[in-house]
Design a binder for these strands. Structure first.
Lengths: 142, 142
DNA sequence: TAGTAATACTTGTATATACAAGTTTAATAT
DNA sequence: ATATTAAACTTGTATATACAAGTATTACTA
C-alpha cells in the first residue's frame, strides 16, 4: 500500500515517520560499504574533520541526546576508529589512523546516498524538502 | 543548536531524522493522556473503526513491518484493549469493550497533537509538508 | 492428487535512540 | 573558603522498530 493511500495519510506523525523510515533505509544501505550505520558515520566524519571535538558539540551537530552520543562513541571505539581522552569534566574525541583512513570512503557513501534518493525524488524537490524540514524543526525547538 | 545551523543541515538523512524525532516527541506527549504510544494508538483506532481487521492490513495502513504489528498487538492485548483470534492462517483483531471505550479519548489526542504542531508550524505549511512527504515516500517505495 | 510455492503471520534477536538518575568537575555565591 | 549550583558527560534501563528465520495454512501446478 502506498503511503498516500493509508487512512492516516493526512497525519503528520504517520507521514513523517513513514518517510523518515524510508530515507533511513536508503541511508543504511548507502553506508553499508563502510560498515557503519549512518549516525555513526556522520559522527566519525565530524571527528575526522574536527579532531578533539567534544561530545556536547557532537550532540548539537547531530541533534541527538548526549547519551546517544556516548553510545555512538563507544561503538566507534570498539571498532578502533576513534579514541576518547578525559580531562576534568571535558572529553575530547579523536580519530585513530584507522578512522582517518576512512574519510574518502565515507564521502563516497555520502555521495552514493545523495544520488540514491535525489535520483528518485529530484534534486530540486529534495532541496526544498530539506529546507522546509530544517525550518520546521527549528520552529519546534524549545 | 538549531537544526539549520548544523554542518549537516543540507543532508536529507540528518534533516529528516531530526525533524521526525521532534514530531515523534510531540506525538508521544499528545498520546500520554491515553497511556499509549502514538503507534499503538493509531493501531487501536483502526481496530476500533474496523473490527476484525487483519495484521497484514494494519501493516499496510501504518506502513510498518508485519513483525512490528505483531509486537504492537501483543502490547495492546496485555492492556486488554484488543483480542486476537486465529483461524487457519488468518488472524483477526477486535477491540475489547475497554478498547472501544477509548475511542473518544483517542480522537481527542489526535486533535491535541494536530493543534500542538500546527500551532507552531502553521496549518497550510503543515498540509503542504505532509503532502510532499507522502508523495516522496510513494516514489521511494519499491 | 501429491508436491511445491506462496501467504500470513510469529519469534528470536539486534539496533537506534531516549529519559532519568548518577558522577565528577568547575563555577558561583555567600 | 565553603557551600551550592551548574555543566558535561556516563550508565542503567526501556521502547520502537527492523530483519531474518520459523511455522502453519492455503493455493497452485503438473
Amino acid at each position: 500500500m502506498k503511503t498516500s493511500e493509508s487512512r492516516y495519510s493526512g497525519c503528520m506523525y504517520f507521514s513523517c515517520s513513514a518517510f523518515a523510515r524510508k530515507i533511513e533505509k536508503i541511508a543504511v544501505e548507502s553506508w553499508k560499504p563502510a560498515g557503519l550505520s549512518p549516525g555513526h558515520a556522520y559522527l566519525l566524519m565530524i571527528v575526522i574533520e574536527e579532531p578533539g571535538v567534544q561530545p556536547g558539540i557532537l550532540a548539537g551537530q547531530l541533534q541527538l541526546q548526549p547519551s546517544t552520543i556516548t553510545r555512538f562513541i563507544e561503538k566507534l571505539e570498539e571498532k578502533k576508529l576513534v579514541v576518547r581522552t578525559t580531562e576534568g569534566k571535558l572529553t575530547n574525541v579523536y580519530p585513530t589512523p584507522k578512522g582517518k583512513a576512512m574519510h574518502l570512503k565515507l564521502k563516497e557513501c555520502v555521495k552514493h546516498f545523495y544520488t540514491a534518493y535525489s535520483g528518485v525524488l529530484g534534486k530540486d524537490e529534495c532541496a526544498r524538502m530539506v529546507q522546509s524540514m530544517n525550518k520546521l524543526a527549528d520552529k519546534l525547538a524549545k
